[in-house]
Design a protein around this nucleic acid. Structure first.
Lengths: 140, 140
DNA sequence: CTTGACTCTAGACTTAGATCAAGGGTCTAG
DNA sequence: CTAGACCCTTGATCTAAGTCTAGAGTCAAG
């Protein structure tokens, strides 16, 4: 009972979730959202389910999942057999990728910080450690 | 004296620096490399200076500078007046951006790690904390 | 002198994730 | 009934940093 109590236009959904109308249509084209019901006029008609799914997508994106990965998560979340196991696996993969990225950035940060610290901020360009490091052969 | 002892074809430069030929021509179009001398045949003819500049670009890119920023660094490195000061400033800005990005990623990592840890890896999708976190309202 | 590797230009294509424009139909408040 | 806000589709455009294609010319070894 009551499968469709409320219905929203695409603009109302966009406002509620905080995404652009074009983005919703784009997600539909990309298979991240199901094709919605239509009014007689052709207007898309959405229920709460779509709103929830859009929020799911937005949160997963904030966690760094790509739309491809999110499409897979959505499929898995509907799979009662292997769903949970596979979801956890994907989340672990994402976590590992994020950790690797953090490590890379920390290396870059350390290198850059050292250069910045060793540059007096004035003098001839030939003696600027930053420019020298960029121009010279790698020395390590 | 001796402004041009050695000269290389674009392919030789590409091999020495480890970038694609197309990338060199692309950098030239983008103003990151000066227009090279040409042989009678129209072939580009490069000296050591270009090789060094290409390495500069590659290293700056590894530090996360965009090509736009690198173009600016190259201009600054030729500016004997304000060059060093401005270069240091740009490096500091880059450093700050990297640090901010690291912080963001750490937040994301912590959130995701908690979810992964709290998911048993089996059971019904409705009870998977990862899926629940994605589907439910943000609770904090 | 031929063959295969190399180079030239102009311009199209790629990825990811949207965003925008044009040209038209619809809905609703007054 | 009309103005303004909203919605429809198709297809183009954007960013960044290249990568690739086609069609033509050049170089070096044998």
């Amino acid at each position: 009972m009551n499968t469709q109590i409320s219905s929203f236009t695409i603009g109302a959904v966009a406002k509620r979730v905080g995404v652009a109308i074009d983005t919703i249509r784009y997600y539909e084209r990309e298979g991240l959202l199901p094709e919605p019901l239509r009014r007689a006029s052709g207007y898309r008609s959405y229920g709460e389910g779509t709103v929830a799914q859009l929020r799911f997508i937005r949160r997963a994106k904030d966690l760094g999942f790509t739309l491809d990965e999110i499409r897979e998560l959505l499929a898995l979340s509907a799979d009662r057999q292997r769903g949970v196991k596979a979801v956890k696996q994907r989340a672990q993969q994402r976590l590992a990728a994020i950790e690797q990225r953090i490590t890379e950035l920390q290396r870059v940060r350390d290198g850059l910080a050292q250069l910045v610290a060793s540059c007096p901020g004035h003098g001839k360009p030939e003696q600027c450690p930053i420019l020298r490091a960029l121009a010279d052969e790698a020395k390590s």
